[in-house]
Simulated assay, not measured.
Amino acid sequence: MVRPMSVKLDADTRARLERLAESRRRTPHWMLREAIVQYVVREEKRETFRQDTLKAWEEYQATGLHVTADEADAWLQNLEEGNDIEPPECHV
């Protein structure tokens, strides 16, 4: 079910939105919906990344397993050169 929601914009922002919508041959309503959808998708990805980061940090704190930056850089360098090698082993 689609339900309306209002957004209050200052006059300058509203005018800019209307000019942009006109240049894109869209309605201001369409532009607002598109902007909100893109924002929500981006922020959901950002939140997923944040949660994954927190889980990785907690796992590191619990186990101490890691690879050094030099080990990761060497692995990435091999990948860039076209060598499909396994990632370095995690260690304490």
Rank of each mutant, 00 (worst) to 15 (best):
V40W: 04
E59G: 05
L17F: 00
E44W: 12
E71P: 00
Q38P: 01
I36Y: 06
L65M: 09
L54W: 05
Y39S: 05
A62Q: 13
E34I: 06
L65Y: 10
P28W: 01
A62K: 12
D52H: 06
T13A: 04
H66I: 08
Q61L: 11
T63D: 08
V37L: 09
V40Q: 07
K45L: 11
T27N: 02
V41A: 08
G64D: 09
L65E: 10
V67D: 05
A69P: 00
W75L: 03
D70S: 14
E71R: 00
D52I: 13
E71M: 04
A56S: 00
R14S: 13
R14N: 12
Q38R: 11
W75K: 02
A72H: 14
V37Y: 09
A69N: 12
Y60P: 02
A56I: 06
H29V: 13
A69Y: 02
D70T: 08
H29S: 15
E18C: 05
R46D: 08
T53N: 15
V37E: 13
T53L: 09
E47N: 07
R24D: 11
L54A: 08
E43D: 03
E34L: 09
R14A: 15
A69C: 10
T68F: 07
E22F: 13
R19D: 12
A35D: 03
D70Q: 07
D70Y: 14
A62R: 14
W57H: 13
A35E: 07
E59D: 13
A35W: 03
H29D: 14
L54I: 01
Q61A: 01
E34R: 12
E59L: 15
E34F: 03
R26T: 04
S23K: 09
Q51K: 09
F49P: 07
A35N: 06
T68A: 06
D52K: 11
V40M: 01
D73M: 02
D73E: 14
R24C: 06
A35L: 04
W57Y: 10
E47Q: 15
E59N: 15
R50H: 11
R26W: 08
R50G: 05
F49D: 13
E58F: 08
W57Q: 12
L54H: 07
D52C: 12
R42D: 08
L17R: 03
V40P: 03
V41D: 02
R46K: 08
Q38Y: 10
W57C: 07
E58A: 13
V41N: 02
D70H: 07
Y39A: 04
V67K: 00
Q61S: 07
R14W: 09
T63F: 01
D52S: 10
A56W: 11
Q51G: 11
V40T: 07
E18M: 04
L65A: 13
L76R: 11
